[in-house]
Design a protein around this nucleic acid. Structure first.
Lengths: 144, 144
DNA sequence: GGGAGTAGTGGGAGAAAGTGGGAAGAAGAA
DNA sequence: TTCTTCTTCCCACTTTCTCCCACTACTCCC
């Protein structure tokens, strides 16, 4: 179970260190994809396989599912965690998530999320304000 | 599984480099054909065989399926990846996809797509804006 | 409080990938 | 047949990437 948030930096070679505590669980090969809310998702390879299988099952005939699988598949890359525990973030993903130097790496159950620090702050602050509203919704669906 | 996007150039001899990471999987012989959404599809030969079979299996009675398989089959050419990992794009396909110098090569599961860089940008930006639709789709296929 | 070990960051060297150009061969026209 | 043009194959250069090593800071344990 991946939990917690960490502050790291991306160097000019586009490398980000995976927090040491996550490395064992996430494995050596990972897949980085475009995520929601302008962040990046990092999946362990096995986890990605499941997502990819479902995506490849979608029909190519319809324009919207075609665009969707393009978005997810072309927007993903398989990469290896190097000997120092870092992964490479290609330019197009860096741009997509507007990553500057400082990033936040968050563990969300079975994936990691990579956020630009400023956006993360903004996002969490907004969520905090709505915490009571969210709690109620979660209550309604029976989480609490 | 072919995933990721890469920026390459077409030289004046109409050659495009296949990203090194794709070469092993895509093999030596490939088929390039007119794709959907104004891009080109590049299939490994074996994969193309399946697509072609499926196309020829379509009912010839209906005018629209007839013209669709004509669109795919007539526009297809078989070509070899040269020793430097490049393929030749004939003029009619280059024109069809409005390819200028800068192109994007995207891996979409079992095929590559070649896009003019400007069109690709336009296309992906349009998709990104539909975040709510994306989230719903992701939910449907069980990513969350 | 001090030392050892681990995590995060930065840099350098060697290797590989991408791109451009030239030469040789094939095809077509005069 | 010969000349020209277009194509294809090969070589070389430049840039980018990748792997490895080193330094610093922080933490944990003695």
């Amino acid at each position: 179970m991946l939990i917690g948030e960490y502050r790291h930096t991306i160097d000019d070679k586009r490398r980000v260190a995976i927090p040491a505590g996550f490395r064992k669980e996430i494995g050596k090969k990972v897949v980085v994809t475009r995520g929601l809310d302008n962040c990046l998702f990092v999946y362990p390879l096995a986890m990605w396989q499941k997502v990819a299988d479902r995506l490849s099952g979608l029909s190519m005939g319809q324009a919207d599912t075609r665009s969707f699988s393009r978005f997810m598949l072309a927007g993903a890359i398989e990469t290896e965690v190097d000997s120092m525990g870092r992964i490479l973030v290609p330019d197009f993903l860096k741009d997509f998530a507007s990553l500057k130097q400082k990033v936040v790496i968050a563990g969300i159950h079975d994936r990691l999320e990579i956020w630009d620090e400023a956006r993360w702050k903004e996002h969490t602050e907004r969520i905090e304000k709505q915490a009571d509203v969210l709690a109620q919704k979660l209550g309604e669906i029976g989480v609490f």
